[in-house]
Computed example of a mutant assay.
Amino acid sequence: MKKHILLQLFMFLAIACKAQTYPLDSDYKIVPNYSYLKDISNALLPFVGDWKANYNGNEIVLKIDKVDHHLNNFDVKKYYQDVLFIRYIIKNSQGNVVESTMNFNITDSNIISDMTFSNENMVSFTYTGGQCTVGWGEINLQLTDTTHFIWNYQPESTAVTNKNCSNYPTGGIKINLPYESADLIFTKQ
């Protein structure tokens, strides 16, 4: 009898968990808490890997990793989602590192995917910014073929001073990610 009850409980939990899985492009605001937005169509996979571009004399290398079942924990909603994280390194023409997040743990990266547009082969990312959140904004990557994508980064403006950022340098903080060109092409390595 006890085995029968445990078996029924296990089957119920398996069915309940299965019922909580939704396609990745579902609206997270309308799914129940702790639902799973799964990349059923593998829309994220073509973006995974190392990508390179040159911009204003700098070499930019992106390392894009996929993490399945990542918990998004917002005040009003908690849900799991398959996501991409971007880490990057920017080197000047002499090969010196201008900025790098390559030493970050994957899930500590400050660039995370938040939405897919499968019909446009595009993924949208939230960038939380660099030092003192300078440069926070939205990044869109749109595949043009299997080895290239277009980078589009729109930083938001922020007033940062040494009052709201204790480690704000006297010379200011520069945004090093490319944001002027909407047509910067990255090539898969």
Score class of each variant (00 low, 15 high):
residue 186 F to D: 04
residue 158 T to P: 00
residue 15 I to D: 03
residue 112 I to W: 01
residue 125 F to C: 02
residue 185 I to R: 08
residue 70 H to P: 03
residue 61 V to A: 04
residue 147 T to E: 13
residue 114 D to R: 11
residue 181 S to Y: 06
residue 28 Y to S: 15
residue 172 G to Q: 05
residue 153 Y to D: 01
residue 3 K to W: 07
residue 170 T to F: 09
residue 116 T to G: 03
residue 53 A to C: 10
residue 109 S to L: 06
residue 21 T to Y: 01
residue 111 I to W: 00
residue 166 S to K: 02
residue 18 K to I: 13
residue 10 F to E: 05
residue 28 Y to K: 07
residue 56 N to E: 15
residue 87 R to S: 12
residue 23 P to L: 07
residue 178 P to K: 11
residue 38 K to G: 05
residue 25 D to S: 15
residue 80 Y to W: 02
residue 169 P to F: 00
residue 186 F to R: 06
residue 32 P to E: 11
residue 5 I to G: 03
residue 135 G to V: 04
residue 156 E to P: 00
residue 77 K to D: 11
residue 80 Y to K: 03
residue 55 Y to I: 06
residue 38 K to D: 13
residue 112 I to M: 11
residue 148 H to S: 08
residue 118 S to G: 09
residue 181 S to H: 08
residue 176 N to K: 02
residue 122 M to S: 09
residue 124 S to L: 12
residue 32 P to Y: 06
residue 45 L to P: 05
residue 167 N to H: 05
residue 14 A to Y: 04
residue 44 L to N: 15
residue 39 D to F: 08
residue 23 P to T: 10
residue 123 V to T: 04
residue 79 Y to W: 09
residue 151 W to P: 12
residue 90 I to T: 15
residue 107 T to N: 10
residue 78 K to T: 13
residue 6 L to M: 13
residue 79 Y to Q: 08
residue 113 S to E: 10
residue 67 V to A: 05
residue 108 D to Y: 01
residue 154 Q to T: 02
residue 124 S to N: 13
residue 86 I to C: 01
residue 59 E to K: 15
residue 50 D to S: 14
residue 64 I to H: 13
residue 141 L to N: 04
residue 138 E to C: 08
residue 53 A to I: 09
residue 33 N to L: 06
residue 152 N to I: 08
residue 43 A to V: 15
residue 43 A to D: 13
residue 84 L to V: 04
residue 7 L to S: 14
residue 31 V to K: 01
residue 67 V to G: 04
residue 174 K to W: 00
residue 103 N to G: 12
residue 55 Y to A: 09
residue 80 Y to A: 00
residue 108 D to W: 02
residue 121 N to Q: 15
residue 95 G to L: 08
residue 168 Y to C: 01
residue 174 K to S: 02
residue 79 Y to D: 07
residue 5 I to N: 10
residue 126 T to L: 11
residue 182 A to N: 12
residue 146 T to G: 04
residue 181 S to K: 15
residue 139 I to L: 13
residue 99 E to R: 05
residue 69 H to P: 00
residue 187 T to A: 15
residue 7 L to Q: 11
residue 143 L to C: 00
residue 55 Y to S: 14
residue 57 G to Y: 02
residue 91 K to T: 14
residue 110 N to V: 03
residue 3 K to C: 03
residue 31 V to A: 00
residue 51 W to I: 07
residue 78 K to Y: 01
residue 113 S to G: 12
residue 177 L to N: 01
residue 100 S to W: 09
residue 35 S to M: 09
residue 126 T to I: 12
